[in-house]
Simulated assay, not measured.
Amino acid sequence: MFDTNRKEDEMKQLNRKTHILEKLNIQKKVEVETLANELNVSEMTVRRDLEKLENNGELVRTFGGAVPVQTISNEIAYQDKKVKNVFQKRMIAEKAVKRIQDGHIIFLDSGTTTIEIAKMVINLDITLTVITNDISIANVLMDSTIDVIMLGGHLQNSTGSVLGTLTFDLINKLNADLFFLGAHAVDEEYGITAPSIEKAQVKIAMMQSSREIILVTDKSKFANKALFKVCELDELDEIITD
């Protein structure tokens, strides 16, 4: 009798896990409360199932639910990013530069979309100051008439970004009209997230030192999540995307 009951429990558990993974594959996100109602079990039972599935590497638990493993986005090297969605990034940049006015001071976040903005602003016949922590952006602007402030700090070799305490401290001493924010991952529930605490801190500091915040990112960054929170979507003034 004991063995029979144990087999029945194992079968029910297997059926629950199958249901969870199938739903996760379709919806890309599941919630504990919803699963408990669908499976007619307690929320604690669902949480135990999610914990076991996470331990097996089949999902990642979040507050109140879970997401697929592949939606946890890690850092991508610059050489890999610069060849992805180039046409979309250029279209986004064309829209973004229309927001820039004569005399503006702008923050350009590190990233391949913001580099496309840098390539276009050199053709603007205006007085402009660009503050950036991206050495590739500084290089694009180097021979132009634009006033460039290159932030100091620790260079992340794989991305060309300058990060760390020195970067953070200098940003806090500056003020800008616009901040063109690049995103590693964007999600309706989790907002904008970054793959490292240093990168998140720099983005947050730029937000706090800017009058307006404009997110510039292509659609591949949406419905993704990284580890460190930058901001909620309602903290942005505008989103430019494809």
Rank of each mutant, 00 (worst) to 15 (best):
residue 8 E to T: 06
residue 234 D to H: 12
residue 110 S to E: 00
residue 36 A to S: 12
residue 159 T to W: 07
residue 220 S to C: 02
residue 206 M to D: 07
residue 91 M to L: 15
residue 85 N to G: 08
residue 61 R to G: 10
residue 4 T to V: 14
residue 183 A to S: 15
residue 153 G to T: 11
residue 28 K to T: 02
residue 37 N to D: 06
residue 211 R to V: 02
residue 223 A to S: 13
residue 1 M to N: 02
residue 115 I to K: 15
residue 95 K to M: 09
residue 192 I to F: 03
residue 146 I to H: 03
residue 72 I to L: 14
residue 135 I to N: 08
residue 157 N to S: 13
residue 106 I to G: 08
residue 212 E to G: 01
residue 49 D to G: 04
residue 140 V to I: 15
residue 64 G to M: 02
residue 142 M to H: 12
residue 189 E to K: 13
residue 14 L to Q: 10
residue 87 F to A: 15
residue 139 N to F: 02
residue 131 I to S: 10
residue 76 I to G: 09
residue 150 M to P: 05
residue 31 E to C: 02
residue 97 V to R: 00
residue 184 H to P: 00
residue 61 R to W: 08
residue 22 E to H: 03
residue 11 M to I: 05
residue 170 L to E: 14
residue 79 Q to F: 04
residue 179 F to S: 07
residue 189 E to H: 11
residue 114 T to A: 06
residue 15 N to H: 12
residue 201 Q to R: 11
residue 41 V to S: 01
residue 157 N to L: 14
residue 45 T to K: 06
residue 106 I to Q: 09
residue 47 R to Y: 10
residue 171 I to G: 10
residue 157 N to T: 10
residue 203 K to V: 09
residue 159 T to Y: 06
residue 120 M to A: 02
residue 141 L to P: 01
residue 222 F to M: 13
residue 34 T to W: 00
residue 214 I to W: 08
residue 40 N to R: 09
residue 94 E to M: 04
residue 109 D to A: 06
residue 65 G to V: 03
residue 101 Q to E: 02
residue 109 D to E: 04
residue 221 K to W: 05
residue 12 K to A: 01
residue 7 K to S: 03
residue 134 D to M: 08
residue 93 A to N: 07
residue 33 E to L: 02
residue 21 L to W: 01
residue 121 V to S: 00
residue 9 D to H: 02
residue 137 I to T: 15
residue 239 I to M: 09
residue 231 C to T: 15
residue 189 E to Y: 09
residue 54 E to L: 07
residue 200 A to K: 11
residue 117 I to C: 00
residue 125 D to H: 06
residue 210 S to R: 06
residue 152 G to A: 11
residue 136 S to Y: 13
residue 33 E to K: 13
residue 127 T to F: 08
residue 42 S to I: 08
residue 124 L to T: 00
residue 103 G to E: 00
residue 204 I to C: 04
residue 69 V to A: 07
residue 64 G to S: 03
residue 144 S to I: 11
residue 191 G to S: 11
residue 44 M to N: 05
residue 95 K to T: 11
residue 77 A to L: 08
residue 65 G to W: 04
residue 127 T to Q: 14
residue 193 T to K: 09
residue 163 L to E: 11
residue 8 E to S: 06
residue 241 T to E: 08
residue 32 V to K: 05
residue 216 V to P: 00
residue 144 S to N: 01
residue 183 A to V: 13
residue 47 R to F: 09
residue 174 L to K: 13
residue 177 D to Q: 03
residue 19 H to M: 08
residue 82 K to S: 13
residue 219 K to N: 11
residue 21 L to T: 01
residue 24 L to N: 03
residue 5 N to T: 01
residue 67 V to D: 06
residue 51 E to I: 07
residue 213 I to P: 09
residue 52 K to H: 01
residue 138 A to K: 08
residue 183 A to P: 09
residue 167 T to F: 04
residue 149 I to F: 04
residue 157 N to C: 07
residue 105 I to H: 10
residue 219 K to C: 06
residue 60 V to Y: 12
residue 175 N to A: 08
residue 53 L to V: 03
residue 87 F to E: 15
residue 210 S to H: 05
residue 111 G to E: 05
residue 122 I to L: 00
residue 130 V to W: 13
